[in-house]
Amino acid sequence: MTSNTKKITQSDLNKVFLRSCTLDSGWDYERQQHLNFCFTMIPVLRRLYGDDKEKMAAALQRHMEFMSCTPHIVTLLAGIVAAMEEENANSEEFDETSIPAVKTSLMGPMAGIGDSFFWGTLLTIAVGIGCSLSAQGSIAGPIVFFLIINVPGFLSRYYGLKYGYELGSKFFSDAKSQAIIANVTKAAGVLGLMVIGSMVASQVSIDLAVMVGSGDLAMPLSEYISWIMPCFLPLCTFILMYYLLGKNVKSTTILFCVIIISCLGCLVGIF
């Protein structure tokens, strides 16, 4: 190897790690996370193209393109991109259009896995456990919530960058790492679903004020319904919501309908 070989250092990667934390903070409707992704890659680009304005401009513009990924795992992509940029800086034959190509083709599937894991499964588990503690006024609620999100969050951010950079674009052609990701995602989904099921029973409450029968025998309708099955109304509501979402009814529409129905229900004495 000649003395001109350019090599990304650990301190560059550390800077990428820190900068990756800002990924969602400059989000815009035009190109989403592009500004912060470019910002994330800058320490690497400075090392590789710092002495060449033209190559630097090309690289910066490459990373100012549309970007959308889950912030907690974006470092995996950043690592892969860093490895490719390094190759590009050291080899004349490297086709630099392959960098945005790989980036664009990976961010979609990665966001699919990452979003459902972090904003889906993990958030569900954290809310499920955190809220049951918070309901009693315990400070453990918010603290446990924070840890459940952030211990896995920062671990995946750290190891994502490490493996992304080491394996480069080979990461996703490696059958073993793909199988592990698929397995963990599926298993975590199962855990998340059990927690959602449990919370439908414990956190959704619908009390009907309607009474059935008369005089001393009068009983709230809710009690009759719970003889069919405990938490029957919450389950039905959940299924109805799920069905409506499946029919592409907007969640905000459902939200405001629930509020209106609740208020009207109070007015006529159903609730």
Partner: peptide
């Protein structure tokens, strides 16, 4: 009071949205 009642029902919407992602 309606908002109070709604606060008991709205979590079902959140759970349904999350379930949609995972099921």
């Amino acid at each position: 009071r309606g908002f109070d009642v709604a606060a008991g029902i709205i979590p079902a919407l959140g759970f349904a949205m999350l379930a949609k992602m995972l099921v």
